[in-house]
């Protein structure tokens, strides 16, 4: 029954592990202090080296800081923001969606109208408004991202729960005397986990992009601390003159997001009982 773990998936898992390891080990593997500036070494291309400061494998940024070190440290910030905010929204959103889809009636109306109210204001506006009021910080960022994005999970969980709840095996389980919690966790959750996981994995990438977008607007992870988004938004002024400032973090971001999404699709295919057999 278990699908063979293909070579491609092995590579992807390896890449994700590498990214995570790089983020985790940033302090030990970075060649330089990511915050150490040198105004005389601004915008040096990849491979530059000086006798006193050593080698800059990926070049330096507009304040003469080592780009490789900043990307490694930046991976940390981006990873943590994405994982935490996705977790917050996944848990909140799924619980509410399950409740709405299962209990229907007033519960559903209440939850889904709240979802509507939340969704009807674009997340980026809500985020900017909130960040503007509270002031940007790491915690604000995670909470704002997490608490503005949960309605997507709720809607998907709600729609999926409605569909699954109507299926005969649920009615059978109910007739067999199983209680709501058991049915929700044992029967419904596994059956709707597929779409939710897909949302979560694509949200993971979106969260990294979202942080980048807020950086572009000046409200993301605060300088001088690096995140991929803040490195890129600072580097876009030098898109041609110092291409390395956007291309390297961009490549990192692209690869990670693609890997996570492919993983998500693969996991979904594995978890989904209907497609697993094929």
């Amino acid at each position: 029954m278990r699908p063979r773990v293909s070579f491609g998936i092995r590579v992807i898992v390896l890449l994700i592990v590498l990214f995570a390891a790089a983020a985790l080990l940033a302090p030990w593997i970075s060649p330089h202090d990511p915050l150490r500036q040198s105004l005389l070494l601004r915008l040096k291309p990849p491979g530059s080296a000086t006798a006193s400061a050593g080698l800059f494998p990926l070049g330096t940024d507009d304040l003469g800081r080592d780009l490789l070190s900043r990307i490694l440290y930046g991976a940390r910030a981006s990873f943590i923001v994405a994982i935490l905010s996705v977790s917050v929204s996944l848990v909140v959103g799924t619980l509410l969606g399950l409740a709405a889809g299962w209990f229907r009636g007033w519960t559903a109306t209440l939850i889904m109208r709240f979802v509507d109210a939340m969704l009807s204001v674009p997340a980026i506006l809500l985020a900017v408004l909130t960040v503007a009021v509270i002031g940007p910080s790491f915690v604000t960022l995670v909470l704002v991202l997490g608490l503005t994005r949960w309605p997507r999970y709720t809607r998907v969980a709600y729609a999926a729960t409605l569909q699954v709840a109507g299926l005969p095996f649920i009615a059978a389980a109910e007739m067999a005397g199983a209680d709501s919690a058991r049915i929700l966790l044992r029967h419904i959750l596994p059956n709707i986990a597929g779409p939710l996981l897909v949302v979560a994995t694509s949200e993971f990438g979106l969260m990294i992009l979202f942080e980048a977008g807020l950086s572009f607007l000046g409200l993301g992870i605060q300088p001088p601390a690096p995140s991929w988004g803040s490195i890129m938004s600072a580097g876009r002024q030098y898109v041609e003159r110092a291409w390395w400032l956007t291309v390297f973090p961009g490549l990192g971001l692209f690869t990670l997001v693609v890997c996570v999404n492919v993983m998500g699709d693969w996991l979904r295919d594995r978890l989904d009982p209907r497609s697993a057999g094929r």
Partner: peptide, 21 residues
């Protein structure tokens, strides 16, 4: 999927200026 994912993995403030250039 590579093509589709490209659209989802690049910050628009970067891809936008690349397009313009």
């Amino acid at each position: 999927s590579a093509l589709v994912l490209a659209g989802q993995s690049l910050p628009t403030f970067w891809s936008g200026i690349l397009f313009i250039l």
